[in-house]
């Protein structure tokens, strides 16, 4: 991806991970991002169960006895001196969000295509800021997410099961 395609700084809105919710009936979890400068603006992203656990482990700053997949990516970055600068939720197509992980090494910047779940799991470990573009914020679903999320929260969220190898 050339730099011309990258979103400009002023188009980015910073979010942080607030919590991870269980979707009781399906094998998915919901990562709830909230806007850094406006805690009422929530941005939910549906992720797979294991991806949700990878984010939850980092959110709870749990140290696992063995490096999990995203710890390994971080470890690669440390060994090769790659700086993980930021992750950006940069696009949405048919309800699927697309993320970019921005990295730099000796002045060379790259943006790596990823799922939001991998990008967020890595951002929490790096650590680096998480942004959503203005464009994605405008185009996100307009259903009443807050009411829907409130309903979900009555179901408690269990501790993730860590599957070790």
């Amino acid at each position: 991806m050339s730099t011309a395609d990258l979103p400009k700084e002023q188009d980015l809105v910073e979010f942080r991970v607030d919590r991870i919710l269980d979707e009781a009936n399906t094998d998915t979890k919901i990562v709830v991002l909230i806007r850094q400068d406006d805690a009422h603006d929530t941005f939910p992203i549906w992720v797979g169960a294991s991806e949700g656990n990878a984010i939850k482990l980092a959110l709870d700053t749990m140290i696992t006895p063995r490096p999990m997949s995203h710890d390994l990516v971080k470890s690669f970055a440390e060994h090769l001196n790659i700086n993980i600068q930021r992750v950006v939720i940069a696009d949405v197509k048919s309800s699927t969000y697309y993320a970019l992980v921005h990295v730099s090494n000796k002045g060379f910047e790259r943006a790596i295509d990823s799922r939001p779940s991998d990008a967020i799991a890595l951002a929490l470990r790096a650590p680096c800021p998480i942004y959503v573009t203005q464009d994605v914020l405008k185009r996100r679903s307009t259903t009443n997410l807050d009411a829907w999320l409130a309903k979900l929260e009555t179901k408690d969220i269990g501790t993730p099961e860590v599957q070790e190898t």
Partner: peptide, 18 residues
């Protein structure tokens, strides 16, 4: 259709030719 975690891991290394 979307890169899974290890596909992303490989892209991460490919980005700098590691």
């Amino acid at each position: 259709p979307r890169p899974m975690t290890h596909d992303f891991m490989k892209s991460f290394l490919d980005a700098y030719n590691a």
